[in-house]
Every structure is written in structure tokens, then in C-alpha cells.
Design a protein around this nucleic acid. Structure first.
Lengths: 173, 173
DNA sequence: TAGTTTGTTCATTCTTAACTGAACAAAGAG
DNA sequence: CTCTTTGTTCAGTTAAGAATGAACAAACTA
């Protein structure tokens, strides 16, 4: 359940700490492996690694988890949790939940954590459409080849946007 | 046509160099503006800015363009062109074309430059599916909540993959 | 042969942004 | 009130990777 990088970590030191280094998987625990891989994947998507690890943690442990627990178990600073939790909340992937008589912040996975990813994706594509449209207007009309290529690109993004809007509806049921 | 950042740039110095700084658009030429914006967008997508500018250049100027011309007009090192052109070629967005009796490399936009973007996107999603499947196998069966959340996520990616495969076919006609 | 041109590779520099620790504000608890 | 707990913000550090210049290899010219 723990990252077990610190030397004094009880879970780590009580075990027979077999061959470290090399391509050995850091920990035997498949859940922490999964969480770590989610971090890597997020990084590949251009997102901060910690954000991916947080999502991974929620997938594994579900239910409302408190702020400090996240920082502790993922072994990162509270500052990082704060920033990334806010980002993920803004993205609609996790949400803050209240706990009566508890001052701490609790978070959990949102209803459909992945929908917003698509919405963000759509936003980017619409920005590109905008860019293309403006280019089309401002570039001299006699540059026929250019306008043809712009049109081709616009067609692509139009189709892609439609496709993803359809997907979005499909996932919303 | 040029970046005109260097002081000795003829195009720059012959004009009445009006108010620099502020939000002023660097150049009046809408085509270089477009190329620059493509660079910015690429950057936002996690791709190198030069890659985006190269694509922008091809959209504007079409036809086979030689290696050295790219370096010159985009005002970047040949090394950058080399690296990015290779990446874009691997991605299937541009392609090398031969010119009889010419030793230089020429490039042009590929048939459907954007299809491969989707394929790359699909690859990433399939990698995630793989990750999810492996996690599902390795995580203890009695963690019911975890498996449920994994299943939900898998469902999402399955739907998304299908949707994008459909889109791909649609664009291939 | 030596000299040019063209593209790639490598080591280095530079930029961007992730991450951290520390200072801070807000909200209890005593 | 003081002392603790909790989360945010900010300045500084660090790490990743984009871009470069120089060295190099390959292919042609003379």
C-alpha cells in the first residue's frame, strides 16, 4: 500500500528486500505498480505525473480519501496534492466531498471521470478550427493551394469533432 | 516569410518597425502568423514547437520543399529540421520525395496528414487498455470495488477506441 | 586525390514546468 | 488568547526535453 522508498518504512524493512536495481519491479504489490503506471501514462499525455498517480490511487482505493492521506501514501508534498487535486477537480475527474464534523478535505472519483477528458480534447480541436478559420479569412484569396489545404484540414477537424461529440453523448447515455 | 527577429534582417529593418512589444502581432503577414500559431498549438499538444511550424509551413506553401529551405525560412538549425522531419515522417504526416538529379531531401505533406494523429491517439488508448487488463489480472479478486472501477474505466476506453476506429474508417473513405 | 554539399548525431545550452519547503491564512481545540 | 491542524500560495530548485552548434559521414564534383 505504500511507496516504500524511505529507509525507515516498516513495510519495506521487514521484508527480505530482494534484488533491487535492474529491471526489477519496485514492489510486489500490484496496486502500487498500477498507480505508478498511471503516473507514467499521465506523463506521456503531457499531464503531471502526480495527477495520474492520484487517479490511480482513487481507482484502487475508491471511496472518499482525505487530503493528508493522499500526500502520505503517495509520498509527495502537500503542495503537490493541493495543486493537482485542484486541477483534477477543475477537470471534473475527482470531486470534493464533505464530512460532517471533519475539517479535512475529502475527495473521490467523479461520476464519470473520463467524460471531461473528451471535453477538454474537444476544446482543443475547436481552438484549432478557430485558428483555421481565421487563417482562411486573412490569407490572400489568390493563394489557391493554401486555401485548398486549409479546407482539407478543416474538414478533418469537423469530422473529428462530430465524432467525439457523438462519443460524448454515447457515454452520457 | 521570415521570422525577422535578427536585427540585420532586411525585411524587418526596411519597414517602419511600428510599436513592438505589447500584444502586437509580430508580423503583418497572415501566413507567418498562421505558421507561428501552428507552432504554439503543437506545443500545447505536447509536441515540439518546430514540428508544428513545419506542418504550418507545408500547409501554406504546399509542394515539395527542400530541407535547407525549411531551415532557412523557419530560422532554425538544420539539426532541428532533421530531427523533427524524421519524427513527422515516422508519424506519417509528411513524406520524403525524390527529385531526379538532386541530392537534397524534399518533403511534402502526406496524403492524409491527420489520419496518423488518430492512429497515434488510438495506440495510447490501447496501451491504457493493456495496463487496465494487466491490473485486473494481478490485483486480488477480493478487492471488489477496485475491480468495479477498473471495469468502468475499461468500458470507457473500449467505447472510445471503437469510436475512433469508426472515425478513422470514415476519414479513409 | 582534395574540396563541397547535405543530412545525421552528439554534447551542451536553454526553457519550461513539475515539485518542493516554508511562510501564510483559516478554522478549531484548549 | 495560544497552540494545533489543514490547505493554499509563493519563491526556489530540479528535472525533462527542445533547440543548437560542431563534429561527423556519405555522396557528389572537379
Amino acid at each position: 500500500m505504500e511507496n516504500s522508498f524511505k529507509d525507515d518504512d516498516p513495510l519495506q524493512s521487514e521484508e527480505s528486500n530482494q534484488e533491487w536495481g535492474g529491471a526489477a519491479e519496485q514492489t510486489l504489490d500490484p496496486t502500487v505498480l498500477f498507480i505508478e503506471q498511471m503516473g507514467i501514462h499521465a506523463q506521456g499525455d503531457g499531464a503531471p505525473r502526480i495527477a495520474g498517480r492520484i487517479i490511480g490511487y482513487f481507482i484502487v482505493h475508491g471511496g472518499p480519501v482525505c487530503f493528508s492521506q493522499l500526500a502520505q501514501e503517495l509520498q509527495v508534498s502537500r503542495a503537490s496534492i493541493s495543486t493537482n487535486a485542484r486541477t483534477l477537480t477543475d477537470l471534473g475527474m475527482i470531486e470534493k466531498v464533505a464530512r460532517p464534523g471533519d475539517r479535512q478535505d475529502y475527495y473521490q472519483l467523479a461520476n464519470n471521470p473520463y467524460l471531461r477528458m473528451i471535453e477538454t480534447y474537444l476544446l482543443r480541436m475547436r481552438a484549432m478550427q478557430d485558428l483555421l478559420q481565421k487563417a482562411d479569412k486573412s490569407i490572400p484569396a489568390d493563394m489557391h493551394g493554401t486555401h485548398a489545404r486549409l479546407a482539407q484540414m478543416r474538414h478533418f477537424f469537423e469530422t473529428a469533432v462530430q465524432s467525439n461529440e457523438r462519443l460524448l453523448k454515447e457515454l452520457e447515455q
